[in-house]
Design a protein around this nucleic acid. Sequence first.
DNA 1: GTCTATAATAGGATAGAC
DNA 2: GTCTATCCTATTATAGAC
Lengths: 185, 185
Amino acid sequence: MPAPLASKDEIIDRLFTVFRDHGFEGASLSDLSRATGLGKSSLYHHFPNGKTQMAEAVLERATSVIDSDIAGVTKLGIPLKARLHKVVATLEQMYAGGRTACVLGQLASSNASAEVRQGLRIAFDHWIGAIESLALESGMPAERAHHFSRDWIAWVQGSLVMQAATGETASFQRAMDALVALSGE
Amino acid sequence: MPAPLASKDEIIDRLFTVFRDHGFEGASLSDLSRATGLGKSSLYHHFPNGKTQMAEAVLERATSVIDSDIAGVTKLGIPLKARLHKVVATLEQMYAGGRTACVLGQLASSNASAEVRQGLRIAFDHWIGAIESLALESGMPAERAHHFSRDWIAWVQGSLVMQAATGETASFQRAMDALVALSGE
DNA sequence: GTCTATAATAGGATAGAC
DNA sequence: GTCTATCCTATTATAGAC
């Protein structure tokens, strides 16, 4: 029984955790209603298209978090190493040290609507772009940076999947170390 | 409407594809019934505990495939390089060149029963063990082989997640190349 | 071992009052 | 903008005939 909420952003933040923890099919309207403290009808007032639209809103929020907390950090006027540490700190918190699923991975693993798939693409593209630009700045050749960004994010995603199965967070931690290592061992 | 089937293994193989493509929550009894060509009651005859037991059976099957087609290859009396190519060929087919989800990843992303989680652990452990022994044989120090096996499987899992979102199979392909590269660039 | 029929429940979604 | 009440469908699961 959560505390009452005020803004739409707060509603979306609560929906976020439900989709992250249960996936699209696993998130029932009852779950979403309970997490937000809103009745089903109230949810439909905010999201007339139902669950699909809620998932879209969650993905838009995820993209904006990526833009501010990851891509945004990329452009700060501080040394590369400091920015890498900031990004890792954000991810460590976002994924609770590797113990929490990623809402992008959860929604990617579902057979959701075309709108949701489009939102997923955009979110991943923004994330990839941010990592790629960090890799380029570290002096990596363009083609390697292209590969690194995608392979590294795959590593992160997979480490979260494996954590869900095995309970191990070590691979997630090594992925974080590998990003920091971009600043030159 | 699939052709009629004979053995229990065939039933499980069809259940396999449904859980792989839709996940645990996304796989309804109607889906499972349609895929097997069996009525719901017939499914309950084979799996009295319902969906959970079906998922367990699928995971046992996945583990046995890992044992024969991956771990088994590890012990063949052919050069390391040939074995690595065989393992990659198996994975390429298993995941349709990176275009198909992994049933382990799909079930890991669900909030399934303790039995399912146990089956997942076992399946991943067998897979990790096989890759780790290949890495050791390639001359990798023990600690690095320990890390490599887990990180590489995370990479594979994550590449499949990202493929579902972006349609890109390149990261999966690079992961396959990285395994072959164990035989020495 | 498979089927038809049916129960019981949960799911997504809507109507209309406040 | 939120609620109660309701609808319809899908879902899991079972009973019992063949």
